[in-house]
């Protein structure tokens, strides 16, 4: 469904991605784990066309989207939930959700999708008239995910959804990620919380200094000695 082939991305003179190749098949949850600065977020921003690749190709559903503008990629059904949530703080929760549906057809029944998001995250319904900036960190993460769901994506890119959240909130959010995947949305999940990510994902890639150093099924990665030592903090 999504294929990155030998991607090189630069920030000015900084060579952030040095030939990243990865594949996500339809229906999968694939995780991208790695330390700070490994290039995980850059990979997602490259896919979304915010920082396009200088070399290599990104293909989504058989179409080359390497240098495509973000709005066209979103229109194809590939939506990102960015790191740090990036909700619109002065827009109400409801307005935030409607911005997620920005490219949806005017005649679509957005109310149905809105209710679906409220079903996934009931707290958002209570807060729907509140500015997004007044929400707690966990609620903002829920809003960021809900906002992306409003686009009815075929595939979701999630950047560190567990960052800075209490364990119980993380459990809740990962349960929702699993649920929307089971309902048909493919997921590429970037995480520093490798434990949680590998428990949820089918397969994974390990990224270090802009390169894929390991790949395999979650089971293989969990039992891999170097992953256990470096990313899971186990012997």
């Amino acid at each position: 469904m999504l294929e990155l082939r030998d991607i090189h991305t630069y920030y000015g003179a900084i060579h952030a991605l040095k030939g990243v190749t990865l594949t996500v098949r339809e229906g999968e949850i694939v995780t991208l784990i790695g330390a700070n600065g490994a290039g995980k977020s850059t990979t997602l921003m490259t896919i979304s066309g915010v920082t396009p690749a200088r070399e290599g190709s990104v293909t989504f559903q058989g179409r080359d989207i390497t240098r495509q503008s973000t709005d066209k990629t979103v229109a194809m059904g590939l939506t990102q939930v960015p790191e740090g949530r990036m909700i619109f703080p002065a827009l109400t929760v409801r307005e935030n959700l409607l911005m997620g549906a920005y490219l949806r057809n005017r005649r679509d029944d957005l109310g149905k999708d809105e209710n679906y998001v409220y079903e996934l995250f009931p707290v958002l319904k209570e807060r729907r008239r509140q500015p997004g900036g007044t929400l707690s960190g966990g609620e903002q993460q829920m809003l960021a995910i809900g906002r992306a769901i409003m686009a009815r994506p075929r595939m979701l890119l999630l950047d560190e959804p567990s960052l800075g959240l209490a364990p119980i909130v993380v459990e809740n959010i990962f349960a929702v990620i699993k649920r929307i995947n089971e309902e048909g949305t493919t997921v590429l999940l970037v995480e520093q919380n490798a434990q949680m990510a590998l428990q949820t994902a089918h397969r994974g890639y390990v990224l270090a200094t802009g390169e894929v150093i390991l790949e395999g099924s979650s089971q293989e990665l969990i039992t891999n000695p170097s992953v256990r030592a470096a990313y899971l903090g186990l012997d």
């Binding site: 979304s48 915010v50 973000t70 979103v74 939506t79 920005y102």
Partner: peptide, 8 residues
Amino acid sequence: TAAQLMGI
């Protein structure tokens, strides 16, 4: 950036 990611 967020606006861009919404497809705006």
